[in-house]
Write a protein that binds this DNA or RNA. Structure first.
Length: 339
RNA sequence: AGGCGCGUAGCUCAAUUUGGCAGAGCUCUGGUCUCCAAAACCAGUGGUUGUCGGUUCGAGUCCGGCCGCGCCUGCCA
């Protein structure tokens, strides 16, 4: 690499006055209702207000998924899902993390300014140690460093996250501060943008909707599947008889109705007064979900049957980011004393 | 690299000591009950015993190789 003064990474190819936002999403496969309401909807909205970069983080996934065929499949499914739900390559940059290997190099460089104790304190690390005690690999520990690299390699200033993710972003900010303190101002401290994304509970009504737990509502599934999943949802456990009044505040079915119609207050009222029963409310919810996602489902099925279309979008996204990533690395090399 | 230990259902484990039908709890599925779901009760599904070979009439169990995980002692850029 030529020895030169750091080029200005401000000269983005996506020349734009909009602040740059970065967000990573795990390649967990086809998205479910919780993914969409909790994150994807916001991604779609934010792509019009920010210079938005969305990254399918397959390097991160390697800390828990060790089946190459499965990972590749899930990465493509995630990409197709995001495009089907409205991410528009004309308005945002969507790419796969491992298509920009500069992320991992920067992670190594950032690792040298990051105390081990910061990482050992990370709640997710402790949690994973409990969840997969036979596979506590180093990637799990260094995960937040790679996360920081993901963000700052594009000098993104805005990171849309749920409030539960605030701690992770704080660690990224600390790593950035540690780097800037040692080598001079280089990276902007990324700011969390808290979205009002709800934590969507699964069909069990207790735990967060999650593919690994198996409590999902699969929005791209066949209508019969969605009906079956909605009908199996846990409702208000105190409402036993049809004539018992319901409590919409604790009924997950009622909560989900918030997202599928302006008339949810009326639906809640029906539950409270036992004018309607749980079956009525579930059937209505199922049909609304099916109708709402029908166009996206069609797009998804189209995209997944033509993987070349998806791959093309991903390749273009990675190519667009290449100059940015290389410029940042060149600047960092110069500051750290690398050739 | 060497020493010790471990590997059995999706999960937690039993059966290994003394070779003799691979089992239990939870999860899951179905049924009863409820407007549904949950809870409760009843029933059922679920296994290449990490893997390859050997000994034996017979191996989850004994022997050897390999793979994986943990702990310990080293070596090294």
């Amino acid at each position: 690499m030529a020895l030169e003064l750091a080029p200005s990474p401000a000269l983005a190819p996506l020349a734009s006055e909009r602040p740059r936002a970065f967000s990573g999403i795990q390649p967990s496969g086809i998205v479910h209702l919780g993914n969409d309401l909790g994150a994807v909807r916001n991604y779609v909205r934010l792509q019009y207000d920010y210079d938005a970069i969305y990254c399918i983080v397959d390097y991160h996934a390697l800390t828990t998924t060790h089946d190459g065929t499965l990972l590749r499949e899930r990465t493509r499914e995630m990409a197709a899902s995001l495009l089907a739900l409205g991410l528009d390559p004309e308005h945002c940059t969507l790419f796969v993390q491992s298509d920009r290997p500069e992320h991992t190099e920067l992670a190594w460089l950032l690792a040298t300014v990051t105390p081990v104790s910061w990482l050992e304190r990370t709640p997710t690390y402790k949690e994973k140690k409990l969840n997969q005690p036979d596979d506590v690999n180093h990637g799990l520990l260094t995960y937040p460093v790679l996360q920081a690299a993901d963000i700052v390699i594009y000098k993104a200033t805005v990171v849309p996250v749920g409030r539960d993710q605030a701690a992770h972003l704080e660690l990224s900010r600390e790593i950035v501060r540690a780097f800037n303190a040692r080598y001079g101002p280089t990276f902007p401290e990324p700011q969390a943008v808290f979205t009002d994304a709800p934590v969507v509970l699964g069909t069990d009504g207790v735990r967060k909707m999650s593919k690994s737990i198996g409590n999902t509502i699969d929005i791209f599934g066949a209508p019969e599947l969605i009906r079956k999943q909605v009908m199996s949802m846990v409702t208000d456990t105190k409402r036993i008889l049809r004539t018992d009044p319901g409590r919409p505040a604790v009924c997950n079915v009622c909560q989900l109705h918030r997202h599928f119609g302006a008339d949810y207050e009326e639906i809640w009222d029906g539950e409270r007064t036992a004018r309607t029963g749980c079956v009525d409310t579930k059937k209505l919810l199922a049909e609304r979900i099916i109708a709402y996602y029908a166009p996206a489902r069609e797009r998804y099925l189209e995209l997944i049957s033509k993987p070349a279309m998806v791959d093309e979008v991903l390749a273009a996204g990675a190519a667009r980011l290449k100059p940015l990533a290389e410029a940042t690395l060149a600047e960092v090399h110069a500051k750290m004393g690398l050739r």
